[in-house]
C-alpha cells in the first residue's frame, strides 16, 4: 500500500485536488468548432462537385451556422483565458509544435472565409430580409466584396476543405497532445473528434434541410460517420485497456466511474447507437421524423466534449 499526501498544504486554486483549468467554454468551443468544420466541409465539397443546386441546404442555407458558431466559439475561448488582454500574442508567432498555435492561426483564416462564404448567398437565401434592410444599397463596398467572393468561390471552397479538416482534427489533437493527462493522450482522439464534428455537421444540415433527397443523402452520410465514430470509440477504449497503469485508471472513469452514465448513456447509446438505428430504419423506408436522430446526434456530440474535457482533467500521473 502506498499513501501520499502534501504536508506543505498545497491547495492551489483550480489545481488541487484536481485540475479545473479548462471550464465549460472549452467544451462548448470544441463542439462548435467541430460543428462548423463539418458544415464547411460538406458545403465546400458539394460546391466543388457542382451539386450546389441539388443540395441547397448544405451549400447555401446551412452556411449561416459556421460563422456564428466560430464567433461564439472564439468568444468562449477568449472568455476562458486568464490573461485575455494579451490574446494578440498568439499572432506574433507560429509554434509548429503547439496544437493551440495551429488552432489559433486556422481559426484566424477560417472564420473570415466562413463569413464570406455565407455572405455570397445572402441575397439568394434571404431576399425578403434584403428587401427590408437594403444593405447593398446603403453600403456600396458590400457589392465589391460580393463580386470578389463569387469570382473566387472555387478557390475559397478549395481552401475551406483542408482548413475544415484541420479545424476538426485540431479540436481533438488539442487534448491528445497532453501526455500528462492519460485520458486524452491517445492518437485516436484527433480523428474521433473530426468524425464526431462531421457527424454533428451532417445532423445540423438534416435539421435545416427541406428536400427529401438532401435529408436522405445526409442521413446516409451521418449513419456512416456514426458507425466510424463507434469503431473509433471502441479503439480508444482498447487503447486504454492495453495501456499503462495511468491509462487503465483513466479508462475506469469512462467504463466504471463517475462518467460512465454520461459517456455510455448519453454519448454512446443516446447520441450514437439510437440515432443510428433510427436513421437506418428511416433509410429502409419506414417513416421516422429525421429531426429526432439529428438532434440526438448534436446533443450527444456536445455531451461528448464535456465528458472528455472534464474527465481528462481528473487524470494525472502523480498524487
Amino acid at each position: 500500500m502506498q499513501e501520499e499526501l502534501f504536508t506543505s498544504g498545497r491547495h492551489i486554486p483550480n489545481i488541487d485536488p484536481s485540475l479545473e483549468i479548462w471550464h465549460w467554454p472549452i467544451s462548448v468551443y470544441l463542439f462548435l468548432g467541430g460543428l462548423a468544420a463539418g458544415i464547411l466541409f460538406f458545403g465546400a465539397l458539394l460546391y466543388i462537385l457542382g451539386k450546389e443546386d441539388e443540395y441547397p441546404t448544405a451549400v447555401k442555407t446551412a452556411s449561416i451556422i459556421p460563422p456564428i458558431a466560430l464567433s461564439i466559439g472564439l468568444l468562449a475561448l477568449v472568455y476562458d483565458l486568464t490573461h485575455p488582454l494579451y490574446t494578440w500574442q498568439l499572432y506574433t508567432t507560429f509554434r509548429i509544435e503547439s496544437p493551440m498555435s495551429w488552432g489559433a492561426w486556422v481559426l484566424l483564416i477560417t472564420t473570415p472565409l466562413s463569413f464570406l462564404w455565407t455572405f455570397s448567398y445572402y441575397r439568394e437565401v434571404y431576399p425578403k430580409l434584403e428587401a427590408k434592410l437594403k444593405v447593398f444599397k446603403r453600403f456600396k463596398f458590400l457589392n465589391t466584396i460580393e463580386k470578389f467572393t463569387i469570382k473566387n468561390k472555387k478557390n475559397i471552397a478549395y481552401a475551406l476543405i483542408p482548413l475544415a479538416l484541420i479545424l476538426g482534427v485540431y479540436t481533438g489533437i488539442l487534448l491528445s497532445a497532453f501526455n500528462a493527462r492519460p485520458l486524452w493522450n491517445n492518437a485516436i482522439l484527433g480523428p474521433l473528434f473530426l468524425v464526431s464534428g462531421l457527424s454533428t455537421g451532417a445532423a445540423a444540415i438534416i435539421l435545416l434541410s427541406k428536400t427529401k433527397t438532401e435529408k436522405h443523402l445526409f442521413g446516409k452520410i451521418d449513419l456512416g460517420l456514426i458507425i466510424i465514430e463507434l469503431a473509433l470509440i471502441t479503439h480508444m477504449i482498447m487503447g486504454y485497456y492495453a495501456g499503462s497503469q495511468v491509462q487503465l485508471e483513466a479508462m475506469q472513469l469512462l467504463i466504471a466511474g463517475d462518467f460512465t452514465l454520461m459517456f455510455f448513456g448519453f454519448v454512446v447509446i443516446l447520441g450514437l447507437i439510437v440515432p443510428a438505428i433510427l436513421e437506418f430504419i428511416e433509410l429502409i423506408g419506414f417513416k421516422v421524423p429525421v429531426v429526432v436522430p439529428a438532434l440526438m446526434v448534436i446533443i450527444g456530440g456536445l455531451i461528448f466534449r464535456f465528458v472528455m474535457v472534464e474527465a481528462g482533467q481528473l487524470t494525472r500521473f502523480l498524487y
Partner: peptide, 19 residues
C-alpha cells in the same frame, strides 16, 4: 507573453504550474 490559456498547466505531469 502569456495569455493564460492553461495549455502548459494541462501538459505538466507534475502539476507544477499555477495561474
Amino acid at each position: 507573453e502569456c495569455i493564460g490559456c492553461g495549455a502548459c498547466i494541462e501538459s505538466c505531469p507534475y502539476d507544477a504550474r499555477y495561474q
